[in-house]
Structures are given as structure tokens and as C-alpha cells.
Design a protein around this nucleic acid. Structure first.
Length: 404
RNA sequence: GUGGGAUUAGCUCAGUUGGUUAGAGCACUGGUUUGUGGUGCCGGGGGUCACGGGUUCGAGCCCCGCAUCCCACCCCA
């Protein structure tokens, strides 16, 4: 038997597939309310795009990319995240030449070559939003509030972690301070952090090593080294979150895994789903558009990991819907089929192709979660009627076939 | 890439110190004497016990290998 590849799953169980669609519908609806429109970009892109956008120092680019050479000898890559492709499309279509703010949402499959575990797959789905051209921190706020809206709509509990990563003014000087600190304590650093010190020193802050964490408690904090504009934006953001009644936790060690973030960084965490607890992450990336050869354009975005939410989504009770059509006799099937097809113009209709007794049909209608069970038998055929039972009201009637 | 656990029916799982024809519940399906479901009763189909070797008179059970899944590390959504 041929099986799906490791870490690549099918979504076909009724409940799972319903949850998935329900999530997409809910999140899309809310994103539209915030002025975002749907964008679809290719799943396969030039490898260079991700190397430049995500950053060579990240694990994603370093060891998790589905990268290969295609038949035209191009180095291509299945997208490991959504932002890079959207930014590329934004620039390629010259939207960076327009002054107007542009807002996009997307959803689709992402690929990372990792060892699968709970909440982590090789092929997985993200829902994300990207906003271009807006410098105001209120846009960062709107992003966070949108995620809150989505999770509230789905009945998902979360905690919000916030940090500011600074900008080109304050980040470089902070980085120097931090490197100075790391140099002074070099001997105490774990192996990974010694490497990070030269490749991407900020990443030491989210090191999982307990000894390192103890050490970094005394390290200089970015939060205390922000420039005036970063600090004021951050204060505006938190003040508004207070007004909106959104609880947050400032986490000075929250450093997003992707290199392109600046200023606001946030992460939504669930406490109910095991080790892979990050259910949404995002922040500002004001430099990325120009890194990818576009005109300098401020931007902010987030992504939600759909698989990690699946078990958390509280589905509304599904109601009985549509019709089940069944025949009691073999020679009634043809007529039944015609009536059912007519009804399909206006309603959901299931047509059973085999003649069965009434009880079997009612069972099947019930199981199919139909609202009405329409039966054609000997009596109805001769009188030009059809027997109809409402499975909710438990009422039944015989109506003219044309009245269906 | 590194560890740990698991793998028996479509699903969830039993299966004794190695011993006849491998079981249950759910699901599916048929019937239950007049054409009435979601909830009664009776029946039925469905398994190369993941796969490949080995030990043994005999392996679902013991040993080795391998694959996949799960959990965790790393990292991230």
C-alpha cells in the first residue's frame, strides 16, 4: 500500500474537515472586517527568496527547507512560511509604488522538513495577514485584536506575549551591548549560544538552556534600551490593549524565529496543547520589503498555525439540513432521481439509489443529518405525490410532487 | 538530527507461563410478519496480528532488523 509521506496528513474525517472549513470561514470573515483581501501566492518559489527573507541564520532556512533543483536547473523551494511570498508578490506587482495601505490575508499549506510531533507536521496550514504601508502602531494593535477576535469566535483560550525588538536606531546599539555581555560571560554560554553570538546574537535570549536563562536574567534588556519612538509606540500599544481589555505579558526574551522582525513582536500561546504551544505569531517587519528590492515600506503581519488549533476549536452545534430522497420500490427510483435533481437547484439533497423499506430510509436520513426525509413508494407514484417527514418536528405529510 | 513509547477488524482496545479455528465494544450491513429514524431484539460480513528475518515441534506473544505513528529535545505556526 502506498502511504502519504511522513508528516503529511489527509484531512477527511467528517469532524476534522468541518473544523478546518469552519476555521477558514471564520478567520476569513474577520480578516475582511478589518479590511483585508484574499491573496493567493505560489507554494513553490525561488530558494533565494526564503534565504533572503527568512534569514540564513534561522533553522528554517538552515535545515528545514524542502529545497530541490527543478528540471530547468533552478533552485526552488516549497514555501516554509507565508510572508516571503506575499512580500514578493507585493513588490513584483508594484504595489510598493503606491502610497495607499494594502492589506492581504492568505491561507494554505507550508512545508518544513522536521521530525513530526504533536502540532508539528512537515506539511501544515497557516492562516496569515500582512499589512503594507502603515507606520502607525495602531496597525500592530489591529493585528493583535484581529487574532483575539478570531480566537474568541472559535472559543479558544490564549495568553498573549509581547515584546519590542527595536528598530535600526536602537537595535544595533543594543546588539553591541548584548554581545559585550556575552563576551564577558563567554565561558558560561552553552554551545548553541556561542554559535548564536556571532550568527544572530539576539537569538540567545530564547535559549532553552536553564543555565543560559539564569545568566540572561542579568543581561541588558532590549526593553530598557529602546529609542524614543520605539518606546512610545510600545507604550501606545500596551495602553490600547488595556483599553480593549486584552491581557498581555511582556516577555523580553520573545525573539521571533524569523530574522525580518522589528519593533512589535507578539505570540499567542495556548496552555492546552502540549509542547508546541505557540498558536499564532507575528509582528512588524519594516525592513523586509526593501531587503527584497522593493521601495522601503513599513509592514506588519501575523500567522496562525491551523493544525495546532484544530482540537481547541469549539464548533457550533450543527443543525439538520436538507433532504434525503429514498424509494420503496425499484421502479420508483427513476422518478425519485428526477425529483431529487430538481430539488438540488434550491437545497442540499441526498438521493439513495437503492430501494429500501421505510425504516431503513429513515435511519439513513437520520444518519445523514438531513432535515427532511422524502419517500416515493407505490401509493405516491400512483397519486403523483411524495411523502415527506420533518425529522426535527416529527411531522409528516403527503404533498404534490410539483410542490416540493 | 537525538532519545523514549507504540503498532492485533474501518475505529478504540483485550489477548494468560509460547499451545487447537485470534476476541469485545463501536461502526457497517440484513432481518425484526401492516410504510415510521435518532433508543429494543436477533443475525452477518470484515484480520497476511505493520513489514522482513530468527529461535522453537509450535510465535499475536520471545530475539534482531526495518517502517510508520505518538511523545519529547532542537526549532517553530
Amino acid at each position: 500500500m502506498i502511504r502519504s509521506l511522513r508528516g503529511m496528513n489527509d484531512t477527511l474525517e467528517p469532524e476534522e474537515s468541518q473544523r478546518f472549513s469552519y476555521f477558514i470561514e471564520t478567520a476569513s470573515r474577520i480578516a475582511r472586517n478589518y479590511g483585508f483581501r484574499f491573496i493567493e501566492t505560489p507554494q513553490l518559489e525561488e530558494t533565494a527568496l526564503f534565504k533572503r527573507a527568512v534569514g540564513e541564520s534561522s533553522d528554517i532556512v538552515g535545515k528545514e527547507m524542502y529545497q530541490f533543483i527543478d528540471k530547468g536547473e533552478n533552485s526552488v523551494c516549497l514555501r516554509p512560511e507565508g510572508t516571503a511570498g506575499v512580500v514578493r508578490a507585493f513588490i513584483q506587482n508594484k504595489y510598493d509604488r503606491q502610497e495607499q495601505t494594502q492589506r492581504f490575508f492568505y491561507h494554505g499549506t507550508m512545508f518544513r522538513y522536521e521530525r513530526p510531533q504533536k502540532g508539528r507536521l512537515r506539511q501544515f496550514h497557516q492562516f496569515g495577514c500582512e499589512s503594507f504601508g502603515e507606520v502607525s502602531v495602531l496597525e500592530d494593535l489591529s493585528m493583535i485584536l484581529m487574532v483575539r477576535n478570531i480566537f474568541d469566535a472559535l472559543g479558544i483560550a490564549f495568553t498573549l506575549k509581547l515584546n519590542s525588538l527595536g528598530d535600526q536606531n536602537c537595535m544595533p546599539s543594543y546588539r553591541e551591548k548584548l554581545v559585550g555581555f556575552l563576551d564577558a560571560h563567554e565561558a558560561q554560554l552553552c554551545e548553541d549560544c556561542q554559535r548564536r553570538k556571532t550568527t544572530n546574537p539576539i537569538r540567545v535570549l530564547d535559549c532553552k538552556n536553564a543555565a543560559c536563562q539564569a545568566l540572561y536574567a542579568t543581561a541588558p534588556k532590549l526593553m530598557q534600551n529602546l529609542c524614543r519612538s520605539c518606546e512610545s509606540d510600545f507604550n501606545t500599544l500596551t495602553a490600547h490593549l488595556d483599553v480593549q481589555g486584552v491581557a498581555y505579558e511582556i516577555d523580553t526574551h520573545l525573539v521571533r524565529g524569523l530574522d525580518y522582525y522589528s519593533k512589535t513582536a507578539f505570540e499567542f500561546v495556548s496552555t492546552e496543547i502540549g509542547a508546541q504551544s505557540s498558536i499564532a505569531g507575528g509582528g512588524r517587519y519594516d525592513r523586509l520589503v526593501e531587503f527584497l528590492d522593493g521601495r522601503p515600506t513599513p509592514a506588519v503581519g501575523f500567522a496562525i498555525g491551523i493544525e495546532r488549533l484544530m482540537e481547541l476549536i469549539k464548533m457550533p452545534e450543527l443543525e439538520r439540513e436538507g433532504y434525503y430522497f429514498g424509494a420503496l420500490d425499484e421502479h420508483a427510483i427513476s422518478k425519485l432521481y428526477i425529483l431529487g435533481m430538481n430539488k438540488r437547484r434550491s437545497a442540499k439533497v441526498m438521493i439513495e439509489y437503492n430501494a429500501r423499506n421505510l425504516k431503513a430510509h429513515l435511519k439513513a436520513a437520520d444518519k445523514a443529518n438531513a432535515r427532511f426525509c422524502a419517500i416515493l413508494g407505490e401509493n405516491e407514484l400512483s397519486s403523483g405525490t411524495i411523502w415527506l417527514k420533518d425529522l426535527v418536528e416529527k411531522t409528516e405529510s403527503e404533498i404534490a410532487q410539483e410542490a416540493l
